[in-house]
Amino acid sequence: MCEANVYLIDKEGKEQLILESVDKVIPSEEGVLLENIFSQRKTVKAKIKEMALVDHRIVLEDL
């Protein structure tokens, strides 16, 4: 499986799981569009901070 869990680091430095089993990450002007294997979508006003795909982990940083 090639999906990853996506975490958001807020302005206070706290990390929070925002979506599991993500298989699409699409940067846009509004932030980052995420879509998982269950067709759930979420747009987050954030930028990509780290992608550790071997660990199935993507970290976003709040804008």
Rank of each mutant, 00 (worst) to 15 (best):
K42S: 01
S28I: 11
V44F: 03
K45H: 11
E35F: 04
E29S: 11
M1N: 14
D62A: 11
V32S: 02
K14G: 05
V59P: 01
E35M: 14
L34C: 07
V54R: 14
E3A: 09
D55G: 06
Q40L: 10
Q16V: 08
N36R: 02
M1L: 12
L34R: 04
T43K: 12
Q40D: 13
L17V: 06
L53G: 02
V25T: 06
K49I: 09
E29N: 13
M1V: 12
K11P: 02
R41T: 13
H56P: 02
S28L: 12
S21E: 10
I48W: 11
H56I: 05
L60P: 01
A46V: 03
R57T: 10
I37S: 14
L63W: 12
N5G: 11
I37G: 08
A46Q: 02
M1P: 11
I37P: 04
L63K: 10
E29Q: 12
E20R: 11
G31Y: 02
D55K: 15
D62C: 09
L17G: 08
D10F: 07
I26A: 08
Q40A: 12
T43L: 12
Q40S: 12
E61N: 05
N5Y: 05
E30D: 15
K14A: 08
K11G: 06
S21N: 13
S28V: 09
A52C: 12
V44Q: 01
A52E: 15
V44M: 04
K47L: 11
L8Q: 04
A52L: 15
K11T: 09
